[in-house]
């Protein structure tokens, strides 16, 4: 498959669309959360105004080169994940830059942003950032293992490392989805998904009560704006990836937004119901339950494939 420059344009359009979806979903989620708590809540388009305001602040202070690069790396991680997964199945406009081995590359990109953020926040030198980074890296690493296992399981099941092919194999009704054909691996995947979404019970990294806001403690104005942009794109990219791998992908934007919203809301609902884990608890939990469940799921998958 040759490289077509026009694909860049389509990728940018799709990036813009998913950015807006992310902004609206995060606003609506906060609105719903507030209404559940009988508060008035923000307006659903408040994230846009916050973003404009943060980009429009007149001054900013840097602590060095890595401090600049931290948010940039974070955003690169988010966009990178998004750019290499096919968004709409069967659409030549919105398949982005997916290729035969994109699943492996996406795994790298998911971790990339966290590492960049760690370097950037570390340069700030604030103790709260350092605590946040320590907790964040430990927890993300713990959650990464079930994530890789889930990806491996899916790859074994469909004998492919290409997200497009995996989506293609799930077409033809709900009974073909990985969710139905291999519920165990889906469960492991969803657990890992919860771990990477930085929502309760796995939000000790950002814990606003104990370590004000975690790694981004010192990031302000434009830096914070970049991080906010990423906060809209990155979860959406991950959710799209999960929709592709486990829930049959989507053939048009309507179905995609619906599925993304439902999958995203699982993490929100879990977050509302369960209190926060401490970082040692969450790591132990991932290693004790998610890892063992994942290994069982892997065995089951390989047996079925035989």
């Amino acid at each position: 498959m040759g490289f077509e420059p026009v694909k860049i344009l389509y990728a940018l359009i799709s990036l813009f669309l998913i950015f807006n979806v992310g902004m609206l979903i995060s606003g609506i989620t906060r609105k719903i959360g507030a209404r559940v708590g009988r508060r008035h809540g923000i307006r659903f388009y408040q994230p846009y105004i916050d973003l404009v305001k943060n980009y429009a602040l007149r001054s900013n202070v840097s602590h060095g080169v890595m401090f600049y690069l931290g948010p940039v790396f974070r955003l690169t991680g988010g966009i990178g994940v998004y750019l290499f997964i096919p968004v709409i199945y069967g659409s030549e406009y919105f398949s982005n830059f997916s290729f035969a081995g994109d699943m492996v590359l996406v795994l790298y990109f998911i971790f990339f942003g966290t590492l960049g953020m760690a370097l950037g926040a570390g340069e700030g030198g604030h103790p709260y950032s350092a605590i946040g980074i320590g907790r964040g890296l430990a927890q993300v690493t713990a959650a990464e293992i079930p994530l890789v296992i889930a990806f491996l399981g899916v790859a074994i099941q469909y004998q492919s490392l290409s997200v497009t092919e995996i989506v293609a194999a799930q077409q033809g009704g709900m009974m073909q989805w990985t969710m139905v054909t291999n519920p165990l691996i889906t469960l492991v995947g969803l657990i890992a998904f919860l771990g990477t979404m930085s929502r309760s019970p796995f939000d000790v990294v950002m814990a606003p009560q104990e370590i004000p806001i975690g790694p981004p403690t010192e990031f302000h104005s434009t830096f914070l704006g970049v991080l906010q942009t990423n906060r809209a794109i990155f979860p959406m990219a991950k959710t799209v990836l999960f929709v592709n791998l486990f829930f049959g992908g989507a053939a048009n934007w309507g179905v995609l937004v619906l599925k993304v919203f439902i999958v995203y809301m699982t993490s929100v609902v879990v977050g509302v119901v369960f209190p926060r884990f401490r970082v040692d608890q969450s790591i132990r939990w991932f290693y004790k339950y998610a890892l063992i469940l994942g290994i069982i799921a892997l065995f089951v998958t390989s047996l079925i494939i035989r």
Binding site: I42, Q46, L57, P216, L224
Partner: peptide, 21 residues
Amino acid sequence: TPRFTPNKHRIQWRPTPWQSN
């Protein structure tokens, strides 16, 4: 608290000085 709903008045609390105005 919900009774005075600061969010309705576009007021949000931030934990660090770097991020507030």
